[in-house]
Design a protein around this nucleic acid. Structure first.
Lengths: 335, 335
DNA sequence: ATGAAAGCGCTAACAC
DNA sequence: GTGTTAGCGCTTTCAT
């Protein structure tokens, strides 16, 4: 404590240089383990730096050596295991490139998403993730920044999008249920947007292909949480106790349904068959283990980062046809 | 496509200025929504910027306005729900400060941890997370950077550490098992380090307080995965089928034990009582729901970031006594 | 409303 | 082995 001043001014390389009685360049050499420097000088510089609490500015450093690429990963809810799995894949792909990933959790809130976009557009080299905002909003707040949308078709040409194609998988799921003798299959769709999800569309089409009717009340909306899935199933069964199987928008909802069915005293799959979507690892932990229309979630994250890499380096983006993750039915125990 | 050159040179504010026929500062004004600028000029600049694909350098910008604080969050495995919950709390605390969080997943690998440290020490304003490396290694690679260790006592004075105090919680757990009549209680400890964990220490002490013997073979090591927990329980029961209850190092291991017990044909808690540690949300999804010595995982992440905030702003770090998260027994169904 | 000059903190290139 | 010069790309005075 040699100085009694209280100003929190930043300690720069200049201060260290003065304190060690050398030039700024020498300080730089010592700190970056360069060869051309005397051992004792180096030690003196290092000591001075430590004494002053010096820490190089990453901005100044980044300015002069254009290295580190940083991408922003935006998810609506990191606690939702689906997004955790995607994030994990994205992190790994980024690490293998030496890239940094700044993670933003928007708490599934449109305002926070906007705030995130505002900040992110100026702070990262590329943006990857889930967004509920319109393409126009995205465009406005990410000027010039490559954007890769996950699980959503980009309307604006500026964006890339990773598409999840679950049509075949859902068809398999419905076929499987039908082969088991189910004729009254309900669905627990999401409730985030007013329109039916594309997954509901696939479900209806597959049902139609089997000549199955889907009564209006057989499709319910569920909040994307375990509790939401449970509540939705309870509502569905209260109104339509004759439904013998349900397909859920995703595994989280399906797991809620599983739990609710148990509380209802229904045996799964004997009394009620349940099939989810996503194929989360979580599905193997519940009892009975969850059958699901599965996608490779980590590959999804990886693919998104790789596409971002292409855009950042100025390479040609992949064709939309190559930015697809396909789902397949994974049969476990719940159906 | 007016130019046919292929060099990927960066588009700078200078290029935009020239293209729009204005000075660099006018470009800056247009891009930053400053007041003193003519509407038509602004539009012209914006158009030029867009046409050139201009994107401001975050380094140059950061250099001149010392704003954005970025912290590095290091976890061994983001797919492990414990770390996800901690990360979620950390992200929220950071967001409320307007900070950015770069997340690194070290894949529980000492080499990757080192590589991460090497990079992180120069790229963030503070480091928060889980590390297996020695304090000396940490010190060497994070010169001058504030470091907050989670779930580990810092030995070096330079670091802050958030301590998890589960002693009372474990004591409650053992007392509860004893009150249920259990006398032969095993433990599934972790297998990351050769020494017994502190949780095992708490367990042994609590058992001793009840006059309970803990035979050497009753304590097994488990990999920190669901499968690891299952395998460990299988081993334990094979050698000591008379054990009637197990305490697990954490919930992930406990859930593996739950699943294994079911496969073994044991009813939980009737034939085997299971208590975990952490109190993860995941514990409510399994059947039976997992009893656990619970900590507030999100508060753990939050506390770590808040302590990092103190260190970054130069405020006095909290006393070690204030950097403690205490665990309490949460009884659900498995015991 | 716009431009010129200065400088943020650092490292690369070239002296000595 | 060490110091000097220049400049990374941007925003901030301060002129005009």
């Amino acid at each position: 404590m040699s100085s009694s001043s209280t100003e929190p001014r930043r300690v720069t390389i200049h201060d260290v240089a003065r304190s060690a009685g050398v030039s700024r360049q020498t300080v730089s050499r010592a700190l970056n383990d360069k060869a051309e420097i005397d051992g004792s000088t180096k030690q003196r510089v290092l000591d001075a730096a430590r004494a002053l609490g010096y820490r190089p500015s990453r901005f100044a450093r980044g300015l002069v050596r254009q290295d580190t690429t940083t991408i922003g990963l935006v998810v609506p809810d990191l606690l939702n295991p689906f997004f955790t799995e995607v994030a994990s894949g994205a992190l790994e792909a980024a690490r293998s490139r030496g890239w940094h990933v700044v993670v933003y959790d928007t708490a599934d809130d449109a305002e926070q998403e906007l705030a995130t976009l505002r900040v992110i557009g100026t702070q990262v080299d590329a943006v990857v993730g889930y967004f509920s905002r319109s393409d126009e909003d995205l465009d406005r707040f990410t000027p010039g920044v490559p954007v890769v949308l996950i699980g959503r078709e980009p309307r604006a040409a500026r964006f890339s999008g990773i598409t999840i194609d679950g049509e075949d998988g859902v068809r398999e799921a419905v076929a499987h249920l039908v082969s088991l003798g189910h004729r009254r299959i309900g669905m627990l769709d999401h409730d985030r947007r007013p329109e039916p999800s594309i997954r509901q569309h696939w479900f209806r089409r597959a049902a139609a292909e089997h000549g199955l009717a889907v009564a209006p009340g057989w499709i319910t909306r569920a909040a994307q949480t375990v509790d939401g899935g449970g509540a939705a199933l309870a509502g569905l069964l209260a109104a339509h106790p004759d439904v013998t199987a349900v397909f859920a928008f995703n595994d989280v909802i399906a797991i809620g349904a599983l739990r609710e069915a148990r509380r209802f005293g229904l045996r799964v799959p004997a009394d009620l068959a349940v099939i989810g979507f996503d194929g989360l690892a979580l599905g193997t932990l519940v009892e009975p283990e969850l059958s699901s229309v599965a996608i490779d979630t980590r590959a999804l994250g990886t693919l998104a980062v790789e596409e971002a890499a292409r855009l950042v380096t100025g390479a040609e983006p992949l064709e939309p046809g190559e930015l697809i993750i396909r789902a397949r039915l994974h049969l476990r125990e719940s159906a």
